[in-house]
Design a protein around this nucleic acid. Structure first.
Lengths: 230, 230
DNA sequence: GCGACTTAGGGTTGACATGACTTTAAGGGG
DNA sequence: CCCCTTAAAGTCATGTCAACCCTAAGTCGC
Protein backbone atom coordinates (compact mmCIF):
# COMPACT_ATOMS: atom_id res chain seq x y z
CA UNK A 1 0.00 0.00 0.00
CA UNK A 2 2.88 2.33 0.68
CA UNK A 3 4.68 4.19 -2.07
CA UNK A 4 7.87 3.90 -0.05
CA UNK A 5 11.30 3.07 -1.29
CA UNK A 6 11.90 -0.22 -2.98
CA UNK A 7 15.49 0.82 -2.65
CA UNK A 8 16.01 -0.84 0.67
CA UNK A 9 15.53 -4.17 -1.06
CA UNK A 10 18.44 -3.68 -3.41
CA UNK A 11 16.53 -2.93 -6.60
CA UNK A 12 18.56 -0.58 -8.76
CA UNK A 13 17.15 1.48 -11.57
CA UNK A 14 19.03 2.04 -14.80
CA UNK A 15 18.25 3.90 -18.02
CA UNK A 16 19.58 2.50 -21.30
CA UNK A 17 19.10 3.48 -24.91
CA UNK A 18 19.04 1.72 -28.24
CA UNK A 19 20.52 4.16 -30.75
CA UNK A 20 19.83 3.82 -34.45
CA UNK A 21 21.65 5.54 -37.26
CA UNK A 22 21.71 5.13 -41.01
CA UNK A 23 24.83 4.99 -43.13
CA UNK A 24 26.07 3.18 -46.23
CA UNK A 25 27.43 -0.31 -45.82
CA UNK A 26 31.18 -0.24 -46.55
CA UNK A 27 30.98 -3.21 -48.91
CA UNK A 28 27.63 -3.18 -50.65
CA UNK A 29 27.22 0.57 -50.43
CA UNK A 30 23.59 0.09 -49.46
CA UNK A 31 22.03 2.25 -46.78
CA UNK A 32 21.98 0.17 -43.62
CA UNK A 33 20.85 0.45 -40.02
CA UNK A 34 23.71 0.73 -37.55
CA UNK A 35 23.82 1.02 -33.82
CA UNK A 36 26.62 1.85 -31.42
CA UNK A 37 27.52 -0.46 -28.55
CA UNK A 38 29.81 0.08 -25.60
CA UNK A 39 32.21 -2.46 -24.21
CA UNK A 40 31.65 -3.38 -20.59
CA UNK A 41 34.62 -2.58 -18.39
CA UNK A 42 33.60 -4.51 -15.32
CA UNK A 43 31.80 -7.64 -14.22
CA UNK A 44 29.33 -9.01 -15.01
CA UNK A 45 29.85 -9.52 -18.75
CA UNK A 46 33.19 -7.68 -18.66
CA UNK A 47 34.51 -7.18 -22.17
CA UNK A 48 31.20 -7.89 -23.84
CA UNK A 49 29.21 -5.41 -25.87
CA UNK A 50 26.18 -3.76 -24.31
CA UNK A 51 23.74 -0.92 -24.75
CA UNK A 52 24.85 2.45 -23.45
CA UNK A 53 23.18 3.12 -20.13
CA UNK A 54 23.67 4.05 -16.54
CA UNK A 55 21.96 4.55 -13.23
CA UNK A 56 19.14 7.03 -12.92
CA UNK A 57 20.30 10.05 -11.00
CA UNK A 58 18.01 11.58 -8.43
CA UNK A 59 17.90 14.96 -10.17
CA UNK A 60 17.27 13.69 -13.68
CA UNK A 61 14.18 13.06 -15.71
CA UNK A 62 14.02 9.65 -17.35
CA UNK A 63 14.50 11.11 -20.84
CA UNK A 64 17.12 13.53 -19.56
CA UNK A 65 19.00 10.65 -18.05
CA UNK A 66 18.95 8.82 -21.36
CA UNK A 67 20.25 11.91 -23.17
CA UNK A 68 22.88 12.52 -20.55
CA UNK A 69 24.24 8.99 -20.58
CA UNK A 70 24.25 9.00 -24.37
CA UNK A 71 26.31 12.14 -24.49
CA UNK A 72 28.73 10.86 -21.90
CA UNK A 73 29.36 7.40 -23.31
CA UNK A 74 29.04 7.91 -27.06
CA UNK A 75 29.11 11.67 -27.60
CA UNK A 76 25.88 11.49 -29.56
CA UNK A 77 22.93 13.86 -29.40
CA UNK A 78 19.76 12.13 -30.58
CA UNK A 79 17.37 13.75 -32.99
CA UNK A 80 14.50 11.65 -31.69
CA UNK A 81 14.03 9.92 -28.36
CA UNK A 82 11.18 7.76 -27.14
CA UNK A 83 10.66 5.41 -24.26
CA UNK A 84 10.60 1.78 -25.32
CA UNK A 85 9.87 -0.42 -22.33
CA UNK A 86 10.79 -1.13 -18.74
CA UNK A 87 12.57 -4.46 -18.37
CA UNK A 88 12.52 -5.97 -14.91
CA UNK A 89 12.83 -9.75 -15.00
CA UNK A 90 14.43 -11.21 -11.91
CA UNK A 91 17.19 -12.98 -13.83
CA UNK A 92 18.31 -10.31 -16.24
CA UNK A 93 21.39 -9.53 -14.23
CA UNK A 94 23.26 -12.39 -12.56
CA UNK A 95 23.93 -10.75 -9.20
CA UNK A 96 21.92 -7.61 -8.53
CA UNK A 97 18.32 -6.85 -9.27
CA UNK A 98 18.26 -4.22 -12.01
CA UNK A 99 15.22 -2.64 -13.59
CA UNK A 100 16.12 -0.92 -16.85
CA UNK A 101 13.96 1.72 -18.42
CA UNK A 102 14.98 1.56 -22.04
CA UNK A 103 14.70 4.33 -24.61
CA UNK A 104 15.32 4.22 -28.31
CA UNK A 105 16.80 7.06 -30.32
CA UNK A 106 17.53 8.17 -33.85
CA UNK A 107 20.58 10.21 -34.80
CA UNK A 108 21.38 12.13 -37.95
CA UNK A 109 24.23 11.08 -40.26
CA UNK A 110 26.42 14.09 -39.48
CA UNK A 111 26.24 13.19 -35.80
CA UNK A 112 27.51 9.74 -36.64
CA UNK A 113 30.36 11.19 -38.67
CA UNK A 114 31.49 13.23 -35.65
CA UNK A 115 31.32 10.35 -33.21
CA UNK A 116 34.16 8.14 -34.33
CA UNK A 117 34.65 4.68 -32.93
CA UNK A 118 36.38 5.00 -29.60
CA UNK A 119 38.15 2.27 -27.75
CA UNK A 120 35.00 1.26 -25.96
CA UNK A 121 32.43 2.31 -28.55
CA UNK A 122 31.87 0.62 -31.87
CA UNK A 123 29.17 0.68 -34.53
CA UNK A 124 27.52 -2.52 -35.73
CA UNK A 125 25.04 -3.37 -38.44
CA UNK A 126 21.71 -3.76 -36.67
CA UNK A 127 21.04 -7.21 -38.06
CA UNK A 128 24.52 -8.59 -37.44
CA UNK A 129 25.19 -7.87 -33.80
CA UNK A 130 27.70 -9.73 -31.66
CA UNK A 131 26.47 -11.50 -28.53
CA UNK A 132 25.37 -8.84 -26.07
CA UNK A 133 25.50 -8.61 -22.31
CA UNK A 134 22.42 -9.20 -20.17
CA UNK A 135 19.15 -9.37 -22.11
CA UNK A 136 20.27 -6.65 -24.47
CA UNK A 137 19.84 -8.77 -27.59
CA UNK A 138 16.18 -9.19 -26.78
CA UNK A 139 15.91 -5.46 -26.11
CA UNK A 140 17.46 -4.56 -29.45
CA UNK A 141 15.13 -6.95 -31.25
CA UNK A 142 12.17 -5.31 -29.59
CA UNK A 143 13.42 -1.83 -30.43
CA UNK A 144 13.93 -2.87 -34.04
CA UNK A 145 10.40 -4.16 -34.23
CA UNK A 146 9.08 -0.91 -32.77
CA UNK A 147 11.12 1.20 -35.18
CA UNK A 148 9.95 -0.81 -38.19
CA UNK A 149 6.35 -0.69 -37.07
CA UNK A 150 6.36 2.99 -36.23
CA UNK A 151 8.06 4.24 -39.37
CA UNK A 152 5.12 2.91 -41.37
CA UNK A 153 2.52 5.12 -39.72
CA UNK A 154 4.36 8.12 -38.32
CA UNK A 155 6.92 10.50 -39.81
CA UNK A 156 9.81 9.53 -37.54
CA UNK A 157 12.05 9.00 -40.55
CA UNK A 158 13.00 12.65 -40.26
CA UNK A 159 15.02 11.61 -37.22
CA UNK A 160 17.53 10.12 -39.63
CA UNK A 161 17.62 13.09 -41.99
CA UNK A 162 18.94 16.66 -42.06
CA UNK A 163 16.44 19.50 -42.00
CA UNK A 164 16.05 19.54 -45.77
CA UNK A 165 15.89 16.41 -47.86
CA UNK A 166 14.56 14.99 -51.09
CA UNK A 167 11.82 12.42 -51.38
CA UNK A 168 14.37 9.95 -52.70
CA UNK A 169 16.37 10.33 -49.52
CA UNK A 170 13.28 9.90 -47.40
CA UNK A 171 12.39 6.81 -49.35
CA UNK A 172 15.92 5.47 -48.92
CA UNK A 173 15.45 5.74 -45.17
CA UNK A 174 12.26 3.72 -45.28
CA UNK A 175 13.82 1.14 -47.57
CA UNK A 176 16.86 0.74 -45.33
CA UNK A 177 14.82 0.39 -42.16
CA UNK A 178 12.25 -1.98 -43.62
CA UNK A 179 14.71 -3.78 -45.90
CA UNK A 180 12.29 -3.67 -48.80
CA UNK A 181 11.96 -1.94 -52.12
CA UNK A 182 9.32 0.76 -52.25
CA UNK A 183 7.69 2.05 -55.40
CA UNK A 184 8.86 5.65 -55.88
CA UNK A 185 5.55 6.86 -57.24
CA UNK A 186 3.41 5.30 -54.54
CA UNK A 187 5.82 6.38 -51.84
CA UNK A 188 5.67 9.95 -53.06
CA UNK A 189 1.91 9.92 -53.07
CA UNK A 190 1.46 8.77 -49.55
CA UNK A 191 4.32 10.88 -48.25
CA UNK A 192 2.71 14.00 -49.67
CA UNK A 193 -0.74 12.90 -48.53
CA UNK A 194 0.42 12.87 -44.91
CA UNK A 195 0.54 16.68 -44.98
CA UNK A 196 3.70 16.82 -42.87
CA UNK A 197 6.01 17.75 -45.75
CA UNK A 198 6.64 21.31 -46.82
CA UNK A 199 8.36 22.04 -50.15
CA UNK A 200 11.47 24.21 -49.81
CA UNK A 201 12.35 24.88 -53.41
CA UNK A 202 14.31 22.65 -55.70
CA UNK A 203 17.72 21.15 -55.20
CA UNK A 204 20.43 22.92 -57.20
CA UNK A 205 22.80 20.10 -57.98
CA UNK A 206 25.32 19.21 -60.62
CA UNK A 207 24.52 15.62 -61.43
CA UNK A 208 23.24 14.59 -64.79
CA UNK A 209 19.56 14.36 -64.19
CA UNK A 210 16.52 16.33 -63.25
CA UNK A 211 17.01 18.03 -59.87
CA UNK A 212 14.64 16.81 -57.14
CA UNK A 213 12.57 19.07 -54.92
CA UNK A 214 13.56 19.66 -51.32
CA UNK A 215 11.24 19.26 -48.35
CA UNK A 216 11.14 19.97 -44.67
CA UNK A 217 9.08 18.26 -42.00
CA UNK A 218 6.29 20.34 -40.60
CA UNK A 219 5.80 19.73 -36.89
CA UNK A 220 2.23 18.72 -36.28
CA UNK A 221 0.20 19.84 -33.27
CA UNK A 222 2.20 19.22 -30.11
CA UNK A 223 1.16 16.03 -28.36
CA UNK A 224 0.55 16.22 -24.66
CA UNK A 225 0.74 12.45 -24.17
CA UNK A 226 4.00 11.04 -22.83
CA UNK A 227 4.70 9.74 -26.30
CA UNK A 228 2.30 9.04 -29.08
CA UNK A 229 1.78 5.39 -29.77
CA UNK A 230 -0.77 3.35 -31.47
CA UNK B 1 28.98 3.89 -17.02
CA UNK B 2 28.16 1.76 -14.04
CA UNK B 3 24.93 -0.13 -13.70
CA UNK B 4 25.09 0.41 -9.97
CA UNK B 5 22.32 1.25 -7.64
CA UNK B 6 20.39 4.43 -8.12
CA UNK B 7 18.92 3.51 -4.79
CA UNK B 8 21.45 5.41 -2.77
CA UNK B 9 20.08 8.62 -4.24
CA UNK B 10 16.59 8.10 -2.83
CA UNK B 11 14.78 7.10 -6.01
CA UNK B 12 11.97 4.72 -5.20
CA UNK B 13 10.33 2.44 -7.69
CA UNK B 14 6.61 1.75 -7.66
CA UNK B 15 4.30 -0.32 -9.83
CA UNK B 16 0.76 0.92 -10.43
CA UNK B 17 -2.09 -0.29 -12.59
CA UNK B 18 -5.00 1.26 -14.42
CA UNK B 19 -7.82 -1.27 -14.27
CA UNK B 20 -10.67 -1.18 -16.74
CA UNK B 21 -13.94 -3.03 -16.47
CA UNK B 22 -17.22 -2.84 -18.32
CA UNK B 23 -20.61 -2.73 -16.69
CA UNK B 24 -23.99 -1.08 -17.26
CA UNK B 25 -24.44 2.46 -16.09
CA UNK B 26 -26.95 2.45 -13.20
CA UNK B 27 -29.00 5.29 -14.71
CA UNK B 28 -28.85 5.03 -18.46
CA UNK B 29 -28.32 1.27 -18.50
CA UNK B 30 -25.67 1.70 -21.19
CA UNK B 31 -22.49 -0.32 -21.08
CA UNK B 32 -19.81 1.95 -19.68
CA UNK B 33 -16.12 1.86 -18.84
CA UNK B 34 -15.41 1.82 -15.12
CA UNK B 35 -12.25 1.78 -13.13
CA UNK B 36 -11.54 1.18 -9.45
CA UNK B 37 -9.61 3.68 -7.37
CA UNK B 38 -8.19 3.41 -3.90
CA UNK B 39 -8.27 6.10 -1.27
CA UNK B 40 -4.91 7.21 0.01
CA UNK B 41 -4.48 6.63 3.72
CA UNK B 42 -1.37 8.72 4.25
CA UNK B 43 0.35 11.85 3.07
CA UNK B 44 0.86 13.09 0.47
CA UNK B 45 -2.64 13.41 -0.98
CA UNK B 46 -4.17 11.68 2.03
CA UNK B 47 -7.86 11.01 1.48
CA UNK B 48 -7.66 11.51 -2.28
CA UNK B 49 -8.32 8.84 -4.87
CA UNK B 50 -5.40 7.21 -6.61
CA UNK B 51 -4.45 4.25 -8.78
CA UNK B 52 -3.76 1.01 -6.96
CA UNK B 53 -0.03 0.49 -6.69
CA UNK B 54 2.84 -0.19 -4.41
CA UNK B 55 6.59 -0.54 -4.19
CA UNK B 56 8.37 -3.10 -6.32
CA UNK B 57 9.56 -5.97 -4.17
CA UNK B 58 12.98 -7.42 -4.79
CA UNK B 59 11.64 -10.88 -5.54
CA UNK B 60 8.89 -9.84 -7.93
CA UNK B 61 8.67 -9.47 -11.64
CA UNK B 62 7.21 -6.16 -12.82
CA UNK B 63 4.02 -7.79 -14.06
CA UNK B 64 3.89 -10.05 -11.01
CA UNK B 65 4.13 -7.02 -8.81
CA UNK B 66 1.24 -5.40 -10.63
CA UNK B 67 -0.87 -8.56 -10.24
CA UNK B 68 0.09 -8.92 -6.62
CA UNK B 69 -0.76 -5.36 -5.67
CA UNK B 70 -4.01 -5.60 -7.57
CA UNK B 71 -5.05 -8.68 -5.66
CA UNK B 72 -4.07 -7.17 -2.35
CA UNK B 73 -5.73 -3.78 -2.72
CA UNK B 74 -8.77 -4.52 -4.85
CA UNK B 75 -9.16 -8.30 -4.82
CA UNK B 76 -9.22 -8.35 -8.61
CA UNK B 77 -7.48 -10.79 -10.95
CA UNK B 78 -6.98 -9.23 -14.37
CA UNK B 79 -7.79 -11.08 -17.55
CA UNK B 80 -5.31 -9.00 -19.51
CA UNK B 81 -2.27 -7.07 -18.34
CA UNK B 82 0.15 -4.93 -20.32
CA UNK B 83 2.81 -2.43 -19.46
CA UNK B 84 1.77 1.13 -20.23
CA UNK B 85 4.64 3.46 -19.51
CA UNK B 86 7.26 4.42 -16.94
CA UNK B 87 6.57 7.82 -15.41
CA UNK B 88 9.52 9.51 -13.81
CA UNK B 89 9.17 13.29 -13.81
CA UNK B 90 10.97 14.99 -10.98
CA UNK B 91 7.87 16.73 -9.67
CA UNK B 92 5.31 13.96 -9.75
CA UNK B 93 5.53 13.41 -6.02
CA UNK B 94 5.91 16.43 -3.74
CA UNK B 95 8.53 15.02 -1.40
CA UNK B 96 10.25 11.86 -2.61
CA UNK B 97 11.43 10.94 -6.03
CA UNK B 98 9.20 8.15 -7.30
CA UNK B 99 9.41 6.37 -10.62
CA UNK B 100 6.20 4.50 -11.39
CA UNK B 101 6.04 1.69 -13.88
CA UNK B 102 2.40 1.66 -14.83
CA UNK B 103 0.42 -1.26 -16.20
CA UNK B 104 -3.09 -1.35 -17.53
CA UNK B 105 -5.45 -4.25 -17.09
CA UNK B 106 -8.83 -5.56 -18.17
CA UNK B 107 -11.09 -7.56 -15.90
CA UNK B 108 -14.14 -9.67 -16.68
CA UNK B 109 -17.60 -8.68 -15.44
CA UNK B 110 -17.90 -11.57 -12.99
CA UNK B 111 -14.69 -10.43 -11.36
CA UNK B 112 -16.19 -7.00 -10.86
CA UNK B 113 -19.30 -8.52 -9.34
CA UNK B 114 -17.21 -10.31 -6.73
CA UNK B 115 -15.12 -7.26 -5.83
CA UNK B 116 -17.59 -5.06 -4.05
CA UNK B 117 -16.79 -1.49 -3.13
CA UNK B 118 -14.75 -1.55 0.05
CA UNK B 119 -14.16 1.34 2.36
CA UNK B 120 -11.05 2.37 0.46
CA UNK B 121 -11.98 1.08 -2.98
CA UNK B 122 -14.62 2.57 -5.23
CA UNK B 123 -15.55 2.24 -8.89
CA UNK B 124 -15.89 5.31 -11.10
CA UNK B 125 -17.02 5.91 -14.65
CA UNK B 126 -13.83 6.29 -16.66
CA UNK B 127 -14.83 9.63 -18.14
CA UNK B 128 -16.08 11.15 -14.89
CA UNK B 129 -13.24 10.69 -12.46
CA UNK B 130 -12.74 12.76 -9.32
CA UNK B 131 -9.46 14.68 -8.92
CA UNK B 132 -6.69 12.14 -8.48
CA UNK B 133 -3.49 12.15 -6.48
CA UNK B 134 -0.11 12.76 -8.11
CA UNK B 135 -0.15 12.71 -11.91
CA UNK B 136 -2.66 9.88 -11.97
CA UNK B 137 -5.22 11.80 -14.01
CA UNK B 138 -2.70 12.15 -16.79
CA UNK B 139 -1.85 8.48 -16.49
CA UNK B 140 -5.48 7.40 -16.77
CA UNK B 141 -5.95 9.62 -19.81
CA UNK B 142 -2.98 8.00 -21.45
CA UNK B 143 -4.19 4.51 -20.60
CA UNK B 144 -7.61 5.34 -22.01
CA UNK B 145 -6.05 6.52 -25.24
CA UNK B 146 -4.02 3.32 -25.47
CA UNK B 147 -7.04 1.14 -24.80
CA UNK B 148 -9.13 2.92 -27.42
CA UNK B 149 -6.35 2.76 -29.97
CA UNK B 150 -5.49 -0.85 -29.34
CA UNK B 151 -9.00 -2.23 -29.37
CA UNK B 152 -9.32 -1.13 -32.98
CA UNK B 153 -6.49 -3.28 -34.28
CA UNK B 154 -6.08 -6.14 -31.82
CA UNK B 155 -8.56 -8.53 -30.23
CA UNK B 156 -8.07 -7.35 -26.65
CA UNK B 157 -11.82 -6.95 -26.24
CA UNK B 158 -11.88 -10.56 -25.06
CA UNK B 159 -10.32 -9.25 -21.86
CA UNK B 160 -13.73 -7.87 -20.98
CA UNK B 161 -15.67 -11.00 -21.91
CA UNK B 162 -16.19 -14.53 -20.60
CA UNK B 163 -14.75 -17.41 -22.58
CA UNK B 164 -17.81 -17.72 -24.79
CA UNK B 165 -19.69 -14.75 -26.13
CA UNK B 166 -21.90 -13.58 -28.96
CA UNK B 167 -20.93 -11.12 -31.64
CA UNK B 168 -23.45 -8.69 -30.22
CA UNK B 169 -21.67 -8.78 -26.86
CA UNK B 170 -18.32 -8.28 -28.56
CA UNK B 171 -19.72 -5.35 -30.45
CA UNK B 172 -21.16 -3.88 -27.26
CA UNK B 173 -17.65 -3.91 -25.79
CA UNK B 174 -16.26 -2.00 -28.73
CA UNK B 175 -19.11 0.48 -28.65
CA UNK B 176 -18.71 1.10 -24.94
CA UNK B 177 -14.97 1.60 -25.15
CA UNK B 178 -15.04 3.79 -28.24
CA UNK B 179 -18.32 5.51 -27.36
CA UNK B 180 -19.62 5.13 -30.89
CA UNK B 181 -22.29 3.20 -32.71
CA UNK B 182 -21.01 0.41 -34.93
CA UNK B 183 -22.91 -1.14 -37.79
CA UNK B 184 -23.73 -4.74 -36.76
CA UNK B 185 -23.24 -6.20 -40.23
CA UNK B 186 -19.95 -4.49 -40.93
CA UNK B 187 -18.67 -5.26 -37.46
CA UNK B 188 -19.47 -8.91 -37.97
CA UNK B 189 -17.61 -8.95 -41.27
CA UNK B 190 -14.36 -7.57 -39.96
CA UNK B 191 -14.57 -9.53 -36.72
CA UNK B 192 -14.84 -12.77 -38.63
CA UNK B 193 -12.19 -11.68 -41.13
CA UNK B 194 -9.64 -11.37 -38.34
CA UNK B 195 -9.57 -15.17 -38.04
CA UNK B 196 -9.30 -15.08 -34.25
CA UNK B 197 -12.89 -16.15 -33.62
CA UNK B 198 -13.95 -19.76 -33.40
CA UNK B 199 -17.66 -20.68 -33.53
CA UNK B 200 -18.78 -22.75 -30.54
CA UNK B 201 -22.29 -23.66 -31.49
CA UNK B 202 -25.36 -21.58 -31.08
CA UNK B 203 -26.75 -20.00 -27.97
CA UNK B 204 -29.74 -21.89 -26.60
CA UNK B 205 -31.79 -19.10 -25.13
CA UNK B 206 -35.39 -18.40 -24.34
CA UNK B 207 -35.84 -14.88 -25.65
CA UNK B 208 -38.18 -14.16 -28.46
CA UNK B 209 -35.83 -13.88 -31.38
CA UNK B 210 -33.30 -15.82 -33.39
CA UNK B 211 -30.57 -17.22 -31.12
CA UNK B 212 -27.09 -15.84 -31.79
CA UNK B 213 -24.02 -17.98 -32.37
CA UNK B 214 -21.37 -18.29 -29.69
CA UNK B 215 -17.66 -17.73 -30.25
CA UNK B 216 -14.37 -18.18 -28.49
CA UNK B 217 -11.14 -16.33 -29.07
CA UNK B 218 -8.47 -18.39 -30.67
CA UNK B 219 -5.01 -17.55 -29.30
CA UNK B 220 -2.78 -16.62 -32.19
CA UNK B 221 0.88 -17.57 -32.40
CA UNK B 222 2.58 -16.76 -29.09
CA UNK B 223 4.44 -13.48 -29.24
CA UNK B 224 7.97 -13.50 -27.89
CA UNK B 225 8.14 -9.72 -27.61
CA UNK B 226 7.56 -8.20 -24.16
CA UNK B 227 4.18 -7.08 -25.33
CA UNK B 228 2.90 -6.62 -28.80
CA UNK B 229 2.47 -3.04 -29.83
CA UNK B 230 2.23 -1.24 -33.04
C1' DG C 1 22.19 22.12 -81.14
C1' DC C 2 20.51 17.24 -80.83
C1' DG C 3 19.76 12.79 -79.19
C1' DA C 4 20.78 9.51 -75.30
C1' DC C 5 20.51 8.86 -70.60
C1' DT C 6 18.88 9.41 -65.82
C1' DT C 7 15.85 10.59 -62.29
C1' DA C 8 11.57 13.35 -60.88
C1' DG C 9 6.93 13.21 -60.80
C1' DG C 10 2.08 12.35 -62.48
C1' DG C 11 -1.69 9.16 -64.26
C1' DT C 12 -4.27 4.61 -64.83
C1' DT C 13 -5.91 0.26 -63.53
C1' DG C 14 -7.37 -3.62 -60.69
C1' DA C 15 -7.58 -5.88 -56.10
C1' DC C 16 -9.30 -5.22 -51.80
C1' DA C 17 -11.20 -2.93 -47.57
C1' DT C 18 -14.92 -0.09 -45.77
C1' DG C 19 -19.58 2.10 -44.96
C1' DA C 20 -24.52 2.41 -45.85
C1' DC C 21 -28.16 -0.24 -46.76
C1' DT C 22 -31.31 -4.29 -47.94
C1' DT C 23 -32.83 -8.96 -47.51
C1' DT C 24 -33.48 -13.43 -45.48
C1' DA C 25 -33.35 -16.64 -41.32
C1' DA C 26 -34.84 -18.11 -36.85
C1' DG C 27 -37.17 -17.82 -32.83
C1' DG C 28 -41.44 -16.38 -29.42
C1' DG C 29 -45.88 -14.25 -28.31
C1' DG C 30 -50.38 -12.79 -29.22
C1' DC D 1 -51.09 -17.34 -38.56
C1' DC D 2 -49.48 -12.72 -38.33
C1' DC D 3 -46.28 -9.77 -36.04
C1' DC D 4 -42.36 -8.64 -33.51
C1' DT D 5 -37.32 -8.89 -32.56
C1' DT D 6 -32.65 -9.94 -33.42
C1' DA D 7 -29.17 -12.75 -36.16
C1' DA D 8 -26.80 -13.23 -40.21
C1' DA D 9 -25.99 -12.87 -45.11
C1' DG D 10 -25.98 -10.14 -49.36
C1' DT D 11 -25.59 -5.76 -52.36
C1' DC D 12 -23.60 -1.65 -53.93
C1' DA D 13 -20.98 2.65 -53.94
C1' DT D 14 -16.82 4.63 -52.37
C1' DG D 15 -11.99 4.87 -51.00
C1' DT D 16 -7.42 3.12 -50.50
C1' DC D 17 -3.35 1.08 -52.13
C1' DA D 18 0.04 -1.55 -54.93
C1' DA D 19 1.66 -2.37 -59.60
C1' DC D 20 2.62 -0.43 -63.74
C1' DC D 21 3.17 3.02 -67.52
C1' DC D 22 4.13 7.49 -69.19
C1' DT D 23 5.81 12.24 -69.47
C1' DA D 24 8.90 16.14 -67.62
C1' DA D 25 13.24 18.13 -66.75
C1' DG D 26 17.64 18.19 -66.27
C1' DT D 27 23.07 16.75 -67.84
C1' DC D 28 26.35 14.72 -70.90
C1' DG D 29 28.53 13.30 -75.30
C1' DC D 30 28.81 14.37 -79.85
Amino acid sequence: MTMQSAIDQRVSLAVSTVIFALRPHPESGLMTLWLPLVRRIREPYEGQWALPGGPLEADEDLAASARHTLERTTGLTPNYLEQLYAFGSLDRSPDDRVVSIVYWALVQPDEVARAVDGENVEWFVADELPPLAFDHTEIVDYALARLRAKITYTPIAHGFLPREFTLAELRAVHEAVLRTHLDPANFRRQALASKTLVPTGTCLQGTSHRPPALFRFEAGPPSNAPEERR
